[in-house]
Nucleic acid binder design. Structure first.
Lengths: 144, 144
DNA sequence: TTGTGACGGTATATTTTGTAACTATCAAGG
DNA sequence: CCTTGATAGTTACAAAATATACCGTCACAA
């Protein structure tokens, strides 16, 4: 009939997101026993350097309760250290411990490899289009 | 630091998917009190015409238990009719009732409008690139 | 026929997630 | 100081997602 759903952008993005996630999840799950929110928080802190939980929320687009729980789990593992923020006592400064950095480092390689494997299925021109389009959409819909 | 995440495709897609979903969810939620799986099943049946639950699963990329519950909820509302399939008595033929079609019709407008509103923030060339890139990625990672 | 494995769909149980409420802190004004 | 309202983060509880087991039916072959 109308095929509305197939052309509806939020639906298409969700479907692609799920499919891609499925491709990479085994890596952080089987290699280090991480859940997706945990992996994301780990990577966000690695990207940001010392930061607050709120910054992790914004950077990774995850709900604060999800981040709160992931930070707890990661700190139990001694992969994330929580220090008081002297400038704002409501918040904490999150950093990766050395073990956390090592854990993160072991993931980047396999994850990048898997991503490359998937992207290489695209023709170069399509790949360029994808990256350009995504960057534009990010600029349009993600407030920072 | 490394900014690995910013360029990691699964992460970027998930972030965009979340953001877009957040933009459109209020429409079907506040307008008709639908959950996301329910809205998707409604749209899938509208797209497909008379179909089975399995076809809805494939078309909408949702787990069969999710579809089962959504179909139940929609049939309670008399938006979806369930008829026995004479050719395979395990399955049922799902169709939209007139009320279901009206409900669907009231959603398409606002949803399309919201989508257009977001997409129109992009330059035409970026928009073309996005659609081209997404189509290519879909072909590459979604097995049908 | 009857046995076997697969499939459509549902029910149940476990896990995950979001909503809302709460504590503690901050910032700005009176 | 002492309001008032906002923010950082946690937690309790309700809602949702997911996996698992299950029932009835089908396809097909011994």
């Amino acid at each position: 009939m109308t095929a509305f759903l197939q052309n509806f952008l939020p639906y298409r993005l969700n479907r692609l997101s799920e499919a891609m996630s499925l491709q990479v999840r085994p890596i952080y799950k089987e290699l280090l026993g991480l859940t997706r929110p945990e992996w994301r928080v780990l990577a966000a802190i690695a990207d940001l350097g010392p930061c607050s939980a709120t910054e992790v929320c914004d950077h990774s687009a995850q709900h604060k309760t999800k981040v709160s729980r992931a930070v707890y789990a990661l700190s139990e593992r001694r992969w994330v250290a929580r220090a008081p923020d002297t400038r704002d006592r409501r918040s904490e400064v999150l950093t990766l411990t050395e073990a956390g950095q090592r854990a993160y480092a072991t993931l980047i390689g396999p994850l990048s490899a898997r991503e490359a494997e998937l992207i290489e299925r695209l023709a170069p021109a399509d790949r360029d289009a994808l990256l350009r389009g995504l960057a534009a959409l990010e600029a349009a819909v993600l407030r920072r």
